[in-house]
Amino acid sequence: MTTADPVQPVAVADSDPITQERIDTSPAIVSDNVDAILRDYDVFRQKCPVAHTNQYGGYWLMTRYDDIKAAALDSATFISSVKAVIPSDPRGLRRPPLNFDAPNHTPYRTALDRTLKPARIKRLGEPLARHAEELLQRLLEKGKGNICTEFAASYAAWVETEWLNLSPDTAPRLASTASAWVDAWRRMDGQNVTFYSTQLYEIAGEVLADRRENPRNPEEDPASSLLLEKNSNGEPLEEVHLLGCIRQSLVVGMVAPPLMLGGICNHLSQDQALQQQLREDPSLIPAAIEEFVRLFSPYRGFARTASKEIVLHGQTIKPGVPISITYSAANRDPSVFDDPHKFVLNRPNIAMHMGFGRGRHRCVGQPLATL
């Protein structure tokens, strides 16, 4: 997946009296209360489908499926090179491929996609299953544990370690560093964001230096694959961007899995019938996973900015102003998904969900995430 911290998707339309009144009263404005946020989405879709907030310097928020899908697919109008996440890196850094537009985006995306073809995903299955069993066994032996912090965060680090061919001792180092970095980002603590990001860059530098000395099969190794690519002028990719892409890849799967697995386990703990159904018939698990991704999209959304002035639902959006294309709102749009807040196994149109995004910046790690 192209990584970023989740957008805080709380917007209030300056021109809408109903939503304007809720600035000081909606729990979603001041917390991560998911139920409150989902209720806000439902209101915004009906009353103000393109809303605006002054939070994080001001940004627009889309909540209707059709608008969000169209924006995600139109990378010429809705660009990523100005701002791709809200809140954005407090230091203003831009890393590929998330923060790049085509054609600059293309070689980085090509290199990463090359390492996630079906044959590679199949080969990763056995070691990743082994890591999952070993981590879960620790919780089983204790008889209790936190599935997000004690299992998912460590497991995500092992997924990254296997995909990027890191040394085994890197996994715990990555888990602790990425966790501290995410926490600092959420608090907009620029000093600690820099501190922990520097440690991630050190890991990226070590990987890149080793692959220059000991290149691996580019179909199996992201760093080796990146070193083969050229920019639009036929020149080798710049060192700073190579490091940035590897560093981005190091954390690409560190944010979403704990959130996603936490949502799944919480849901299953409350729906004992579904839990039993999946235990008895594991063939239903892939379909269940797709519905879980729709319901519990770990990234609420990503940001774009308009490359030109556009008018949408009567609102004029100026170039350079951030726009949240809120996938979690699209996935709960009742005009597309019947009973959108309900888990429906084998939902007929489940392939329409946008839990992995759309367009040029769809989740690069979707095959790995699904596995």
Score class of each variant (00 low, 15 high):
residue 1 M to P: 13
residue 6 P to N: 07
residue 7 V to M: 14
residue 7 V to Q: 09
residue 13 A to F: 05
residue 14 D to I: 02
residue 16 D to Y: 07
residue 22 R to W: 12
residue 27 P to V: 06
residue 32 D to I: 03
residue 35 D to A: 13
residue 36 A to V: 03
residue 37 I to W: 02
residue 46 Q to N: 11
residue 47 K to M: 08
residue 51 A to N: 04
residue 52 H to L: 06
residue 58 G to V: 05
residue 62 M to L: 15
residue 66 D to Y: 01
residue 76 A to T: 13
residue 79 I to E: 10
residue 80 S to A: 15
residue 88 S to R: 10
residue 89 D to P: 07
residue 91 R to T: 11
residue 91 R to G: 03
residue 92 G to R: 10
residue 94 R to N: 07
residue 95 R to I: 06
residue 95 R to D: 04
residue 100 F to M: 03
residue 104 N to F: 03
residue 113 D to H: 10
residue 113 D to N: 14
residue 115 T to V: 11
residue 117 K to A: 14
residue 117 K to G: 12
residue 118 P to A: 08
residue 119 A to I: 10
residue 119 A to E: 15
residue 128 L to V: 14
residue 129 A to H: 13
residue 138 R to Q: 15
residue 141 E to G: 01
residue 142 K to T: 05
residue 143 G to A: 08
residue 153 A to D: 01
residue 156 A to F: 03
residue 157 A to W: 05
residue 159 V to Q: 06
residue 160 E to V: 15
residue 163 W to H: 11
residue 163 W to Q: 02
residue 165 N to L: 02
residue 170 T to L: 01
residue 171 A to G: 09
residue 173 R to V: 14
residue 174 L to Y: 08
residue 176 S to M: 11
residue 176 S to F: 04
residue 177 T to A: 03
residue 182 V to E: 10
residue 183 D to N: 12
residue 183 D to E: 15
residue 193 V to P: 06
residue 194 T to D: 14
residue 195 F to C: 00
residue 200 L to T: 07
residue 203 I to N: 04
residue 207 V to Y: 00
residue 219 E to V: 09
residue 222 P to T: 00
residue 222 P to Q: 00
residue 226 L to I: 13
residue 228 L to V: 05
residue 233 N to P: 00
residue 244 G to W: 07
residue 252 V to D: 14
residue 255 V to K: 01
residue 260 M to C: 01
residue 260 M to W: 00
residue 266 N to F: 09
residue 268 L to A: 09
residue 270 Q to W: 00
residue 278 L to Q: 05
residue 280 E to W: 00
residue 288 A to M: 02
residue 289 I to M: 10
residue 291 E to C: 02
residue 293 V to K: 12
residue 294 R to D: 05
residue 294 R to W: 03
residue 295 L to G: 01
residue 296 F to N: 11
residue 298 P to V: 03
residue 299 Y to A: 14
residue 299 Y to G: 12
residue 303 A to T: 04
residue 303 A to N: 06
residue 303 A to V: 04
residue 304 R to G: 07
residue 306 A to D: 07
residue 309 E to M: 02
residue 316 T to S: 12
residue 318 K to C: 00
residue 319 P to H: 06
residue 322 P to L: 04
residue 322 P to T: 05
residue 326 T to W: 06
residue 326 T to D: 09
residue 328 S to A: 15
residue 332 R to I: 07
residue 336 V to W: 02
residue 339 D to F: 02
residue 348 P to G: 05
residue 352 M to N: 12
residue 353 H to Q: 15
residue 358 R to D: 15
residue 361 H to P: 03
residue 362 R to K: 10
residue 370 T to G: 00
residue 370 T to C: 00
